[in-house]
């Protein structure tokens, strides 16, 4: 499809090719992820941005092979990690990668911890499983990890239960859990969405700092372009299960070429904007994945659409080095002033 973008399999840490995840629901099939391809290099930070329901979380769960089957199904594609296709591994082989080489932080720290087990125990589980540690060593390491993510008095808090932690602290501990086995990829699935704004910034900073320190690659999934700005090297913008624009973060900000990206940028409030002005919002609703139009999924909400948009689906095409957009009218699309 977009082979020009794919240099060579072996050069990238993670390479996703034509990943397609389908859900069988009443009334039909839904392609939550529809032919997503991209690469991730060692130590790189990639932002994945889109509205809720655009498939960004499902794509992450597909990489981890944590999609509930049924109703979900990874229909086709390839996820090659260090040269191995994760989608072809046995369940046992995949388990050895989960939590060790690729780990994940989830959206809601309130519900992501098992309420009947201590925080320490839940971190130790991963250490004992993947690092071959005994209980004593794992307990000591769990304390170190909690300290690393800035949980105060970690040697006391390690034996606390999740309900004794605040939301921000739980998310910090969740990062400690995710980093326990020194993964080479950390997938953060909207880790700040459920938190207060001030805590959000702390978590973003923490991940950024730890990424520099530990050198892992990060896939940061969010609906908030503002959050990725200070964090990611590159951004994938997703809409209705597809990547509609991808490129270096500065390019995307300065020179967006997909009307959806333009809309997302336009709906960010910025300091210094004239007060009293209404914040822009993209007209219409996020698409209903059951009744997608034949052509471009964004066409119904798009200001630039032409007849062609209704009938033909645009593919990603390069607009400048490393910057791709999937839009028939990409040459006309300009950032809002």
């Amino acid at each position: 499809m977009e082979d020009s973008k794919v240099v060579s399999t072996s050069e990238h840490l993670l390479e996703v090719k034509d990943l397609t995840t389908r859900f069988d629901i009443e009334g039909g099939q839904v392609y939550a992820v529809n032919g997503v391809s991209y690469t991730l290099d060692e130590g790189e930070a990639l932002g994945v941005v889109g509205e809720s329901g655009c498939g960004k979380s499902v794509h992450a769960l597909s990489i981890m092979r944590l999609i509930p089957i049924p109703p979900g199904r990874i229909e086709k594609g390839e996820v090659s990690f260090k040269g191995r296709d994760l989608l072809k591994l046995s369940d046992d082989e995949m388990r050895q990668i989960r939590g060790k080489d690729i780990s994940m932080i989830f959206q809601d720290p309130m519900t992501s911890w098992n309420p009947v087990l201590t925080i320490g125990f839940q971190i130790m589980e991963a250490l004992q499983l993947h690092m071959g540690m005994d209980k004593v060593a794992a307990h000591a390491r769990a304390i170190e990890l909690l300290e690393l993510v800035g949980v105060p008095e970690p040697s006391l808090r390690v034996d606390d239960y999740p309900h004794q932690f605040s939301g921000g602290m739980r998310q910090r501990a969740m990062i400690a859990l995710a980093l326990a086995c020194n993964p080479s990829v950390l997938i953060a699935d909207e880790p700040t969405t459920a938190l207060d704004v001030t805590i959000q910034a702390q978590i973003v900073d923490l991940v950024k700092r730890l990424q520099q320190k530990l050198g892992m690659a990060v896939i940061w999934i969010t609906h908030d372009l503002g959050v990725v700005a200070g964090l990611a090297d590159r951004v994938n913008v997703m809409y209705a299960g597809r990547i509609v624009e991808t490129g270096p973060i500065t390019e995307i900000y300065k020179n967006p070429r997909h009307p959806y990206t333009v809309g997302l940028l336009g709906s960010l409030p910025s300091i210094g904007e004239r007060t009293g002005e209404r914040l822009f919002s993209i007209p219409g609703e996020p698409p209903d994945l059951i009744g997608l139009p034949k052509g471009c999924a964004f066409a119904p909400r798009c200001n630039y659409r032409t007849e062609r948009c209704w009938n033909e689906t645009p593919e990603l095409e390069e607009v400048s080095p490393g910057h791709y957009a999937a839009c028939w009218e990409k040459d006309k699309v300009r950032k809002m002033q």
Partner: peptide, 15 residues
């Protein structure tokens, strides 16, 4: 269906 079950699976624990 709870989130913490997904967390547990994402750690690589056996089913």
């Amino acid at each position: 269906r709870q989130d913490y079950i997904t967390t547990a699976r994402s750690k690589g624990l056996a089913e």
